[in-house]
Design a protein around this nucleic acid. Structure first.
Length: 644
RNA sequence: GCCGACGUAGCUCAGGGGUAGAGCGUUUCCUUGGUAAGGAAGAGGUCGUGGGUUCAAUUCCCAUCGUUGGCUCCA
């Protein structure tokens, strides 16, 4: 007998060699039916594997992440079986579970697989699932494994086997499909009740663009049809929040082929919104001791040779521009820091001047690969809410802390709660990617990680994600379709001060090198606005809303009164407009609701005689009649509360 | 940049080898109304662009540009 300890602390004695499935059966048959895998001593294994020693045991069902991922992993095998049925020559690379489903990378050879083939494949998968085939695990020798895939002609599996130890290789077979796989898998294909293939994409073998591009098929499966329906509904809902859709509908921004790809045109309402955000940050920055600077959109190529950017990114930038007669070479500025360094150098600096904080909404241009452009989140011209802090080494921690405070304040005001602070450090395997002194790098990495922890940030550490000149702390958020984006960023830089030979005179009357901190709380205005749109589904906080109030006269007779109300609102710095169309009130209300105007003021006979307005809140309905003064106060209080 | 998909009116989309349609929006007229769509009439498109096949192409083929889902990249 062996003892298994369940998560609730209870201990069960079972016969040696019994499986997790047996344990589940002893609890209830219903549970046993739902067990997808088992976590034994912290390791997830097939639920039918024998338990030979005293163990802790967690039975994994659909409600456990481990259960879900096992199911999806098994679903990848099921999809592969279906694909092999129709494409016997297909070669399979890797097929792992991912956050919301699974994928399989497949070499279809000469054949093309597109989303038009989804239906056929889904049907085959369901047919195979209904056969309730078991996933059979088999340990194989390396030689046998190689023989099997040589015979099959699958060079990808052979390459994978090449990296495996003899004795640790397992195959899993379900139905007519056998795959090299570590496992674990669900007991039977029958547990997969609903299947949806989601997208096809090209993906390089082993993630290297020098390798062959395979066809990646993404899919998701569920143990119940209903869950699939709900999942698809959720995806539909997410699409409605997409900033590209809302940006068009709410007339915030526009892209024109005639201007160029990845170059956003801000429409009046979008410009109003962005301007509000910029003003808001300017006020905060002034309070935090930043000084505004303004620099040109181009800079001499030599500036970027000094900074190291030319060597690093010159080939991947927009080509330089030249003066017509002298042939002087300029770059469209890809970042603002070299310009700011020159401002620092404009006169001798004393330690008494530090820290110096130069802030600029600086528009930069970068040649992003065409395939990577995406709405406002990835563009070729964008405006960073940039600032560079020049400080002494012993001020670094303090300054990083202050920047984090600023970012957190902004996130709080905008109710961004769903973010992760990512500490990006060097790739230990690729030290040549970085410029600068190793000792400085170590100091910088330590400083960022420690301050982030002190501030109580929920941080993750990513190796190899650092900028080439220093480590970063990035605030990452997700967009409506689940993609991760970097918003705010804090980057430490010991390298640029070296390259630009920045100096200040210390209290010892010696020359010292300052440290630079690059920081942008929004990241870029384009990306930030995109994420903001999705975050609030187009219903902007009152203080940001391009049109805060719309006045809706019942009929033409009340236009004059409506104008007088408009006047009063304008005088109180409230952004309002009158809907003077010859439409009925129901139509005007509907349009204002659809356009997500936060407040509607209905004015007609009653209101004009009593000098009031009937207030209606977007999404909420009628709030009753108030005097204009009371309404103004209501709005102002609300805005005050939001910015507190 | 690479692989797949898409590109029809301002927007959302239908159609399909014989030179195009809906809803919304827009314009004009009627209606002057009380909390999510009043009525009527009209304007608006060389079907992304350039080639090719064909008696005939918006429809089929190729290229190109753009958009898009991923991959790679991301100062």
């Amino acid at each position: 007998m062996v003892k298994v300890t369940l998560p609730d602390g209870s201990i069960r004695e079972i016969a040696k060699g019994s499986s997790a499935h047996d344990v589940a059966m002893s609890i209830s048959e219903g549970l046993a039916r739902n067990v997808l895998a088992a976590e034994v001593n912290g390791e997830i294994i097939d639920s039918n594997r024998p338990i030979e020693v005293d163990s802790t045991l967690k039975l994994l069902t659909w409600n456990d992440e481990g259960g879900k991922s096992t199911m999806w992993h098994s679903s990848a095998h099921l999809m592969a079986e279906a694909i092999e049925f129709y494409y016997p020559k297909a070669k399979f690379a890797i097929g792992p579970p991912i956050e919301n489903g699974f994928y399989y990378d497949i070499d279809f050879g000469e054949e093309v697989f597109s989303d038009k083939d989804f239906k056929k494949m889904e049907d085959k998968m369901l047919e195979l699932a209904r056969q309730k085939n078991t996933y059979e695990r088999k340990e194989v020798s390396k030689a046998d494994a190689i023989a099997y895939f040589k015979d099959k002609g699958d060079e990808y599996k052979l390459e994978l086997i090449d990296g495996l130890e003899d004795g640790s290789i397992t195959f899993y077979t379900q139905g007519n499909f056998t795959d090299l796989c570590r496992g674990p898998h669900i007991p039977s294909t029958g547990m997969i009740k609903a299947v949806k293939l989601l997208k096809v994409a090209g993906a390089y073998w082993r993630g290297d663009e020098k390798n062959k591009q395979l066809t990646r098929i993404y899919g998701v499966t569920f143990p119940k049809q209903k869950e699939l329906t709900e999942h698809l509904l959720l995806l539909e809902e997410a699409k409605k929040r997409d900033h590209r859709k809302l940006g068009k509908e709410l007339e915030l921004f526009h892209f024109s082929q005639n201007v160029g790809q990845g170059l956003a045109l801000w429409l009046p309402k979008g410009a109003e919104l962005r301007g509000r955000l910029e003003d808001f940050l300017k006020v905060q920055q002034r309070k935090a001791g930043y000084e505004p600077v303004i620099t040109p959109h181009i800079g001499s190529k030599s500036l970027y040779e000094t900074s190291g950017h030319w060597a690093k990114y010159g080939e991947d930038s927009f080509k330089p521009i030249e003066t017509p007669h002298e042939g002087e070479v300029y770059m469209l500025k890809p970042m603002n820091c070299p310009h700011h360094c020159e401002i620092f150098k404009a006169k001798p600096r004393s330690y008494k001047d530090l820290p110096i904080r130069y802030a600029e909404f600086g528009t930069v241009y970068r040649y992003e690969q065409s395939g990577e452009l995406h709405g406002l989140t990835r563009v070729r011209g964008f405006t960073q809410d940039d600032a560079h802090i020049f400080c002494s080494p012993d001020q670094v921690r303090d300054e990083i802390g202050k920047v984090i405070d600023l970012v957190l304040y902004i996130f709080k005001v905008l109710e961004f709660t769903d973010y992760v602070a990512q500490v990006s450090l060097r790739d230990p395997n690729n030290p040549g990617k970085y410029i600068g002194d190793v000792a400085n790098w170590e100091k910088a990495e330590k400083a960022i990680a420690e301050v982030a922890t002190e501030k109580g940030l929920n941080t993750i550490v990513e190796y190899g994600e650092a900028a080439f000149y220093g480590p970063k702390l990035d605030f990452m958020v997700r967009d409506a379709i689940g993609r991760k984006w970097q918003l705010g960023t804090v980057q430490l830089d010991y390298s640029l001060p070296e390259r630009f030979e920045l100096e200040y005179v210390g209290s010892d009357n010696e020359r010292h090198r300052p440290v630079m901190i690059h920081r942008a709380p929004f990241g870029s205005m384009e990306r930030f606005v995109a994420i903001l749109i999705e975050h609030c589904a187009g219903k902007f906080p009152l203080w940001l809303s391009p049109e805060q109030v719309r006045i809706l006269p019942i009929s033409e007779k009340y236009h004059e009164y409506a104008d007088s109300v408009l006047n009063m609102l304008n005088n109180s710095d409230i952004r309002a407009a009158v809907d003077e169309r010859a439409e009925k009130i129901g139509k005007k209300i509907r349009d204002a609701e659809v356009e997500k105007v936060p407040f509607m003021l209905i004015v007609g006979e009653e209101e004009s005689t009593s000098s009031q307005v009937s207030v209606r809140q977007q999404g909420e309905g009628d709030l009753g009649a108030k005097s204009v003064a009371d309404f103004v106060q209501l709005i102002q209080k609300e805005i005050e509360r939001m910015l507190a």
